[in-house]
């Protein structure tokens, strides 16, 4: 079972996404801010990280840079998942080190497909 670390501060979105992912057969660990996200990337060693960008404490861009900069967690694929969906936001996300970008509202089917590709599960 693949393990996903969901870093998301909005309670509703956290609840909704985690439940949907669990139903799809993923194990889900949850972090509520950037700092916790960085810590849990080490402790939980997830297969993929879904990272919101506007986060308290440490924002998603910085958290991603920290995760990618740490040899222990640098190899974990990170997918930015954000309501910042204007021109340039995708590039900003990738520049911070994200391997993939998804905008909110989330297209769940597409999200699953991207997660599978990132975790090497896709056919």
């Amino acid at each position: 079972m693949k393990k996903i670390l969901l870093v998301e501060d909005n309670e509703m979105n956290r609840d909704m996404l985690s439940r949907r992912l669990i139903r799809r057969g993923f194990e889900v660990a949850i972090a509520v801010d950037g700092r916790q996200g960085v810590e849990m990337a080490t402790t939980e060693t997830p297969d993929v990280i879904l990272m919101d960008m506007s986060l308290p404490e440490i924002d998603g861009w910085e958290a991603t840079r920290m995760i990618k900069g740490n040899p222990q967690t640098g190899a974990i694929p990170v997918m930015g998942l954000t309501a910042h969906a204007m021109a340039g936001d995708r590039e900003k996300c990738l520049a911070a080190g994200c391997d993939e970008y998804g905008s909110k509202p989330v297209d769940f089917a597409e999200l699953i497909e991207k997660i599978q590709r990132l975790t090497g599960e896709s056919e």
């Binding site: 509703m12 979105n13 506007s54 309501a83 910042h84 969906a85 909110k104 509202p105």
Partner: peptide, 26 residues
Amino acid sequence: FLANMSHELRTPMNAILGYSEMLIED
């Protein structure tokens, strides 16, 4: 303002669409 607006509108929209899809599925 527009960028913020877009962000602020997308956030609740994500919950609305997500939950309703989930309800339809499950």
